[in-house]
Write a protein that binds this DNA or RNA. Structure first.
Length: 488
RNA sequence: GGCUCCAUGGUCAAGUGGUUAAGACAUCGCCCUUUCACGGCGGUAACACGGGUUCAAAUCCCGUUGGAGUCACCA
């Protein structure tokens, strides 16, 4: 078996779809698992949709996710150029297309857009039996007519000449043999009027020229695959291993689209997902390891990946589970890197001079995605308006009266505290609790409520009081007393 | 509509003729606990349907139903 070579061949037309990322990932994993090469090829044959910034997105995303290519536009491996618009300059695609014309496997077509449109329109109205494919009109042009048209500078395309009888069988590593009637095969365009090759044609040519051994792509291309066989056969080329992956869908089981709000890697990044969590999650969409495990680093995926275990049925992109997984990564993150992500977000919400690192630590196990932080710590900057009823808690056995009592008792004691830290505050509270033989909650619930104005907070009374500092927490406790007295 | 593909809990999924049909997310409950989380323990919940083949079918075959994808000089 020859050395494994895979390729990721994105079109620079916008953001990086998660399906694209998964394709890239699988290509990368197949190559690395076999100690082979992973190449990046840019398929910019569509000048209409080309957007230069998309190139940056591609490089940036791949770098971020760790999918480093061995060859590509920026890394020559002897198979260049790696950008199709550059490859075209040598005339390769046209040359190969002409070879096909010689062999009778392709032909020039001078049909206008209008004729093609009317062809399709008439097909639709006809009882639905008719299929919308090209009618081979130009196949029957004489050599003289073709030469005349060419000489006259008439725009032309080159189309594949598919047989109208028999069947073609395409083999896929996941889906097995797929056989279609040749009657179904449209004479697809190989070379466009602007001279660029179509995606389908350029793919076959470049994969061959670059010695690609495994081609991973989405299931949406499955139906166009049989036509490739005819190309490979016409050229007498070895067919690479095709690996079609199941579609990634939204919660409605439709192909994941922009509408879902999380169809691209950039969407996910903006929503506070970690690159390694995205990679991990996407790897498991349509593939599962033999081991019963879900958290994998990229290196571990390389080790464990076996493309034969890719499944056939579509996978819903469950954003809830993705968030859970991201939360697992956040919890496992080392503090230094965690702070790089968390601190900037905390600064947006907490403008006062508190220990932001302590706040960040408090929140680490309580978020799934970074933007979750904001709503959890909004009470630090300013004590929210709250109701006296918030002191009532059945399980803590607190009510307004006994809460007021606790706050009144604790206030002077806290005032006298010289060193204001978790251990000293805790010791003080424990002392009071012991004196009065109370449950912890009886005194800690009122304190935490007074100091936060919220029923749910990250951390407890001690942590919050320490962060707020003596002055601010006492101020808040006095406010609590005032509130409870007013309600009396 | 034609063609192609797919079909195990709400979701991701293990399973390749004989299993009490794993596990994870979500959900519910309990424990831990000053709240919320974290962590621990447990519960609810699935082989789409109908025919075959077989001693034995979630697993193989056929059909039905359902879903998806695709039908461009886009990729």
């Amino acid at each position: 078996m020859s050395r494994v070579r895979t390729r990721f061949a994105p079109s620079p037309t916008g953001r990086m779809h998660v399906g694209n990322l998964r394709t890239a990932l699988y290509e990368y994993l197949i190559a690395k698992h076999a100690d082979g090469s992973f190449v990046l090829r840019i398929e910019d044959t569509d000048q209409e949709r080309f957007v230069p910034e998309a190139l940056d997105i591609i490089y940036h995303t791949m770098e971020l996710t760790g999918l480093v290519h061995d060859e590509g536009p920026d890394k020559d491996g002897g198979y260049g150029p790696y950008v199709q618009s550059e490859r075209m300059k040598s005339g390769v695609y046209l040359d190969f297309a002409k070879q096909l014309v010689e062999k009778g496997e392709a032909y020039y077509c001078f049909c206008t857009k209008e004729r093609l449109d009317s062809l399709r329109a008439s097909d639709k109205t006809e009882s639905g039996k008719e299929i919308a494919k090209y009618d081979k009109h130009c196949l029957h042009l004489s050599k003289e007519e073709i030469a005349a048209n060419l000489a006259a500078g008439k725009p032309y395309v080159i189309r594949q000449n598919n047989p109208e009888t028999g069947t073609t069988t395409f083999h896929d590593a996941i889906y097995g043999d797929i056989t279609v009637d040749n009657e179904e095969l449209d004479d697809m365009v190989l070379i466009k009027a602007d001279g660029y090759p179509t995606y389908n044609f350029a793919n076959v040519i470049d994969d061959h020229l670059m010695n690609i051994t495994h081609v991973v792509r989405g299931n949406e291309y499955l139906s166009s695959a049989p036509k490739y066989n005819r190309l490979y056969e016409a050229f007498g080329w070895e067919i690479p291993e095709y690996v079609h992956c199941p579609i990634i869908t939204d919660e409605n089981h439709k192909k994941l689209s922009k509408r879902s709000g999380h169809s691209s890697v950039e969407d996910l990044l903006e929503q506070g997902f970690l690159p390694e969590a995205i990679v991990n999650f996407v790897a498991l969409l349509g593939w599962s390891p033999s081991e019963d495990r879900e958290i994998f680093s990229l290196e571990e995926l390389v080790e464990a990946f076996d493309y034969h275990h890719i499944s056939k049925s579509p996978a819903v992109f469950d954003i809830t589970k993705a968030k859970w997984m991201n939360g697992e990564y956040i919890k496992a993150m080392d503090m230094e890197r965690y702070l790089e992500y968390a601190l900037p977000l905390i600064r947006k919400v907490v403008t006062k001079d508190y220990d932001l690192v302590k706040i960040a630590e408090l929140v680490k196990t309580r978020i799934e995605v970074f933007p979750d932080i904001a709503e959890k710590i909004d009470f630090f900057d300013e004590l929210p308006e709250y109701d006296a009823d918030m002191y009532i808690h059945k399980k803590m056995k607190t009510n307004r009266e006994n809460s007021l009592q606790v706050l009144r008792d604790m206030l002077p004691r806290l005032e006298e505290l010289s060193e204001y830290s978790i251990p000293s505050i805790e010791a003080l509270c424990k002392e009071y609790i012991a004196e009065h033989e109370l449950k912890n909650g009886r005194v800690l619930w009122p304190l935490r409520t007074a100091v936060s104005g919220k029923q749910m907070t990250p951390g407890g009374a001690y942590e919050i009081m320490e962060i707020l500092g003596k002055e601010e927490s006492l101020l808040r406790i006095r406010k609590g007393i005032a509130l409870l007295e007013r309600e009396d």
